[in-house]
């Protein structure tokens, strides 16, 4: 047995694979949002982690001030934060069209620092607990591990959203407009399609995906101002490995990197925070456009 050779009992290995997949589901949804935004707006959205955090905080606010529970927040929080994204695109990012990528990166990075700074000031760094929805508390013993129902739900919900996004972009009319907009916006505009509105909506959608991941994360980690900054760099590495702007690449790489990280946590836990960057470096050397990217 391979597992015996590695000195790890098989049940531990299966458990870690499953956990890796669960974490990978988060990476997939987050990197998907980044890929959508980069693909259509050519913006490296460093505010993504902060917007993910806002998704979790919206969930908390909705429960605290409006009595809206988890299931309502799953719909409402992405809409609210997505609307904020539309405002950001319309009034800030729009001004940077046509200039170097670096400006967009700096602007979104600055935004992230400001948003996170304000939330640390208001709520502290320890975060606030958010309860698991009553329908999903408890779990099932799989024999090799105890699987909380909520974690299983996270994988299912993430996959549904990822597939829906793929269908939206690859199989619908709006999707074809969006893809055409990235290829040749002038021509598309000449056909009578309102390209600026399209890109605004695309940014809003990418942001809503981040907020959706934030809602999913709320019952698992503390709702904390720093939850996004811990994650964002890893997610960027995932996007780079998958190929900037590739939707399928983002999802598949997200899941794969979750598994890679999970296995590293067994064999060499100290390196688990670094392993994804190692993969990134190797991929950049061998395939600079990323695993699923089209080389320029």
């Amino acid at each position: 047995m391979l597992t015996d050779l590695l000195g790890i009992p098989p049940q531990v290995l299966f458990g870690q694979l499953l956990l890796g997949l669960i974490n990978g589901a988060f990476y997939a949804v987050l990197s998907l949002g980044l890929a959508v935004i980069f693909g259509l707006l050519n913006i490296v959205n460093f505010a993504h982690g902060a917007l993910y955090m806002l998704g979790a905080f919206s969930t908390y606010f909705l429960a605290k001030y409006l009595g809206v529970g988890y299931w309502g927040a799953l719909i409402l929080a992405p809409l609210i934060v997505g609307a904020l994204g539309i405002v950001i695109e319309r009034y800030l990012l729009r001004r940077l069209t046509g200039v170097d990528h670096l400006y967009g990166l700096l602007l979104t990075f600055g935004l992230a620092l400001v948003i996170e700074g304000i939330f640390v000031k208001l709520f502290g760094a320890s975060g606030i607990p958010y309860p698991t929805p009553p329908q999903l508390t408890g779990g099932i013993n799989l024999g090799f591990m105890f699987l909380p129902y909520y974690r299983a739900w996270v994988v299912v919900a993430s996959l549904i959203v990822c597939i829906a996004t793929w269908v939206l972009f690859e199989r619908t009319k709006i999707g074809s407009y969006l893809r055409a907009g990235t290829e040749n916006p002038q021509l598309l505009q000449a056909f009578g399609v309102n390209v600026p509105v399209l890109t605004t909506l695309a940014y809003g959608y990418g942001v809503a995906l981040a907020a959706f991941a934030g809602v999913l994360a709320a019952p698992i980690t503390q709702v904390s101002p720093l939850m996004g900054s811990n994650l964002i760099i890893v997610v960027f590495a995932v996007v780079v490995i998958g190929g900037m702007g590739s939707i399928v690449g983002a999802v598949v790489t997200g899941l794969a990197m979750g598994v890679v990280e999970g296995l590293t946590k067994v064999f060499w836990p100290e390196a688990s925070a670094t392993v994804i960057f190692l993969v990134m470096a190797i991929v950049l050397v061998l395939r600079p456009a990323g695993l699923f990217g089209k080389s320029a």
Binding site: G15, L19, K265, A273
Partner: peptide, 10 residues
């Protein structure tokens, strides 16, 4: 670290 599930499993 933000995710401890793997460490808890071990």
């Amino acid at each position: 670290s933000s995710d401890f599930s793997s460490f808890v499993l071990q």
